[in-house]
Design a protein around this nucleic acid. Structure first.
Length: 615
RNA sequence: GCCGGCAUAGCACAGUGGUAGUGCAGCUGAUUUGUAAUCAGCAGGUCGUCGGUUCGAAUCCGACUGCCGGCUCCA
């Protein structure tokens, strides 16, 4: 598929060629694979005996600078497949001259190019590369560049292939743009939720508890609780009912749902009952045999739930249902556990135990369209409440070539149609992507972009024609006959862990008042006014405002500084004048001094700000 | 999981084979303060864990654990 490169991508792609040229000047034997532009820069994958380290960067950058200064034009040349292969055989592709070793990766890539497609070379100076282009006019167009970091990557991302050294860099047409880029990176580093989470004591991950398992500290717990309260209110308004279900369930439940065999690789291993284990041990059962028994369903056990749906289904089936009960909307802040690969874990955004703001809607086929629309409306409303508006909507459809999907084609068509209609009605930008559906049904994902341009999947709405069949769900219709309901899974925030992680970065730790763990701090100018300060705290706490007093013997400047650093939204400075008049001197974190107000007035003001969830 | 880098006090860091340090935070005392850091003292460490080399290891070697960056973007 032809893809239009942006000007910046073209510049960075050309920068990758300059990087390769520079590396070849130092190590002529280097073998290159792919060198594309990426978000924030470019890279080139190289196979080289010498292990490149950051200490090599100045040397490579010096050569790159010389190549840029030499103003080498990029020349495009069409070539026949035979001649390209000949060049590759003599090591001339991605090289400065002929070499003893053939350009193996380039020849491999060459063989992948479909018959009939135009094959092109790009040259700058002595460097020749097999490349579809396009490129900038000349190396001098690269106004600023810098090598940034190293990584390793398997050729074509397949771990059976050779391991290559990946050298990352970035480039821009002017030094000013590059400075701005690094300034943004610096800012992003300050906003990193892993750093802020530690500084502001929001959460903690402890090795002795386990990788990817979040401990919510008191301050973080307040934020989570506020989010849950906010959502719970919305759920009540939209006719949901909240439920609670356990963290584990019998393995057979997940065999029925299909999660166990299908997601086995991404689940914590099953828990086998002690008696079962002892009896198997007495038969000298090996681990392999045990695993086989579990796999084949010959013994039961328990599983940490990877999904909440089967439990909600069991609440659905706990009593006879009729069409009058539908739609039945069961919601739960349900914690699920998934076995993410250790290298994939990161802070709160990629974890092994997380809490979904989950719900399952049981409805009739006729109700699907309305329910999906309402779900999308809810997600939209929630994201707007945080002014997280930099997102796109992705509709995941079947991959027509794959047979991994469960459910009849008719049902899939119906579901995909309903998603399409709902997204269209929502009136937001969306893309429909084949192969992105879940195995049980099509889905609509909300993908949000963070400050670094990384995309995170948050909210999701998924239609499921499959589970109702697997669990034999039915309701009595107006005709008095049983009918199969349709299920919709949906989570507006996705997971509270990931959402809070992104929220920390979104607000850079400066939470709006309604989310702030400590909303206001009373700062007496001296210990003489400690009692007055404490009385204000008591008053506020009784009214549900999160307040505390700094009764240390520090000077007022130090108290203010500490409150600023700890990102407390409001500071109330109190001394003799305030005590005499029953007032407080208000200082806001954002705007500094805001003048003196009667205590009641200030209290009303922030209560309004809290209740309206002002940003 | 794989590759690379990293691991020293609660946090940020110094210390490259010879008695483990600095700043902030903490505790104690003094100070009683008016809008972003008052002063002094004290305490805090099996230098991630285990093993090896050495007269001697935070430092050199190995394994493990954890963290960070990558591992999709293809000529």
């Amino acid at each position: 598929m032809p893809y239009e490169m942006t000007d910046l991508e073209r510049l960075r792609h050309s920068s990758a060629h300059v990087l390769a040229t520079a590396i070849l000047r130092i190590w002529p034997e280097a073998q290159f694979a792919a060198g594309p532009p990426v978000e924030g820069g470019f890279y080139y994958d190289v196979e080289l005996e010498h292990r490149i380290t950051p200490e090599d960067f100045p040397r490579i950058e010096k050569e790159m600078l010389a190549i840029v200064a030499a103003n080498q034009p990029f020349e495009r040349e069409e070539i026949s497949r035979e001649n390209a292969l000949k060049l590759g055989q003599s090591g001339r592709l991605a090289a400065l001259s002929n070499r003893t070793m053939p350009s193996k990766f380039k020849m491999d890539i060459l063989r992948e190019i479909p018959e009939g497609e135009v094959i092109t070379l790009y040259r700058n100076g002595e460097f020749v590369d097999l490349c579809a282009g396009p490129h900038v006019v000349s190396t001098a167009s690269i106004g600023a560049f810098k090598l940034t970091h190293l990584a390793s990557a398997f050729y074509r991302g397949d771990e059976r292939n050779p391991q290559l050294q990946r050298i990352y860099g970035t480039s821009f047409s002017t030094p000013e743009e590059m400075d701005a880029h690094f300034a943004i990176l610096e800012e992003a580093k300050k906003r990193d939720h892993r750093k802020l989470g530690k500084d502001l004591r929001l959460f903690h991950i402890d090795d002795s508890v386990g990788q990817g398992l979040i401990l919510w500290c008191p301050a973080g717990a307040i934020i989570r609780q506020e989010l849950q309260n906010f959502l719970s209110t919305e759920l009540r308004l939209q006719g949901y009912q909240q439920v609670f279900t356990p963290h584990i369930a019998r393995l057979n439940l997940f065999r029925t749902s299909g999660h166990f065999p299908y997601y086995a690789e991404s689940q914590f291993p099953p828990i086998i009952e002690r008696e079962t284990l002892l009896s198997l041990a007495s038969e000298n059962c090996s681990c392999a045999e045990l695993a086989n028994h579990v796999q084949e369903g010959e013994i039961d056990g328990f599983l940490l739930k990877p999904m909440n749906c089967p439990m909600h289904i069991k609440i659905f089936t706990s009593q006879p249902r009729s069409y009058r009960h539908l739609p039945l909307r069961l919601a739960e802040f349900g914690t699920v556990y998934r076995w993410e690969q250790s290298g994939e874990l990161s802070g709160m955004t990629r974890v092994r135990g997380f809490t979904q703001d989950d719900a399952h809607l049981f409805c009739t086929k006729e109700q699907i369209d309305t329910e999906i629309q309402n779900c999308l409306g809810l997600v939209n409303k929630v994201l707007k409440a945080f002014r997280m508006e930099n997102y796109r909507v992705r509709v995941g459809l079947r991959d027509p070539a794959s047979c991994k999907y469960v459910g009849s084609p008719e049902n899939w068509n119906h579901a995909e149609d309903a998603c399409h209609k709902a997204v269209t009605q929502l009136g937001v930008l969306y893309s429909e992507e084949e192969g992105e559906a879940a195995f049980y049904g099509p889905k609509i994902d909300f993908v949000i972009k963070d400050i670094l341009g990384r995309e995170w999947q948050l909210g999701t709405v998924q239609v499921d024609f499959n589970l109702p069949i697997r669990f034999g769900l039915s309701y009595t219709g107006p005709d008095g006959k049983p009918h199969v309901p349709v299920m919709i899974h949906r989570a507006p925030l996705g997971s509270l862990e990931r959402f809070v992680g992104l929220l920390i970065e979104h607000f850079a730790g400066d939470f709006p008042l309604w989310l702030a763990p400590e909303q206001t701090r009373i700062l007496p100018v001296s210990e003489k006014f400690a009692d007055f300060a404490q009385s204000i705290v008591n008053l506020f706490v009784q009214s549900g405002i999160r307040a505390s007093a700094d009764l240390s013997s520090e000077k007022i400047g130090a108290k203010i500084r500490l409150a600023q650093v700890e990102k407390v939204p409001y500071m109330l400075i109190v001394g003799g004048r305030e005590q005499a008049s029953g007032q407080v001197s208000v200082r806001s974190r954002k705007n500094g001094e805001e003048g003196t107000l009667p205590i009641d007035d200030f209290q009303r003001r922030i209560q309004f700000e809290i209740e309206s969830r002002e940003l």
